[in-house]
């Protein structure tokens, strides 16, 4: 019933359009010629409409007389779908990356000696690539122990003035200063953390990096 209604509506519009165009035709010798061409157009439009009703394409390979919604919009739908899919993939990758960042931070918190303050996981986000979604690299940002401000006593102990012990001609104060500036965690601990990360995510140890801030 709905199809029949659409067919009748189309035919009514075509007839009104034909009458409207016929009124535009010039009076004189040209009128029959223009009338003939318009008649042909109306015939095609009507047969096309009937063809749509019975699901048959009467026009074949001819240039499309009527713009069928399904055919016209098919490429647009596919393009829109691709854009939508790409957008969703990027959103998914971003969420996956955020989740992995938090996961790495939580895993690094197991090693309490190493103060990991931030983590960045680099993921292959090129859609269509065979390694799409795989982890490329993990970068952990480790904060060195904050330097204690001068003239401010610590909670548990009181600063002691450096004592220079003069034995022969060697001054031990130079060694103390060097030891004081070295605040990064021990290398073995960092290597352990890197191994843990690499094993957990099935990566090579070279893919896990620690950056000191």
């Amino acid at each position: 019933m709905e199809i029949l209604r659409g067919l009748i509506q189309n035919l009514i519009i075509i007839i009104i359009l034909a009458m409207f165009l016929e009124m535009l035709l010039p009076a004189g010798e040209m009128r029959p010629y223009v009338n003939m061409v318009m008649g042909l157009l109306i015939i095609i439009a009507v047969i096309q409409t009937v063809g749509d009703l019975v699901n048959r394409d009467f026009t074949g390979a001819l240039p499309a007389l009527t713009e069928r919604e399904g055919q016209v919009q098919l490429s647009e739908i596919i393009d829109t779908g691709r854009e939508f899919s790409s957008g969703q993939q990027q959103i998914a990758i971003a969420q996956y990356k955020n989740g992995l960042d938090q996961q790495v931070l939580a895993l690094a918190a197991i090693h309490q000696e190493i103060p990991v303050v931030a983590a960045e996981v680099k993921i292959n986000s090129e859609s269509g690539d065979i390694n799409f979604g795989q982890i490329n690299e993990i970068i952990m940002i480790v904060e060195k122990e904050p330097a204690r401000p001068e003239n401010q006593p610590a909670k548990d102990f009181v600063d002691v003035e450096p004592v220079a012990v003069q034995v022969n001609s060697y001054s031990y104060t130079e060694g103390l200063e060097r030891a004081g500036s070295e605040t990064s965690p021990p290398r073995e601990t960092v290597a352990g953390l890197i191994n843990t990360m690499a094993n957990f995510y099935n990566l090579k140890p070279e893919q896990v990096k620690c950056v000191y801030r």
Binding site: I14, L41, A45, T49, P63
Partner: peptide
């Protein structure tokens, strides 16, 4: 005329 053509689904080429 253009509106009627659109409603009838006739291509603008014709």
């Amino acid at each position: 005329i253009k509106e009627l053509t659109d409603r009838a689904g006739i291509s603008m080429i014709y």
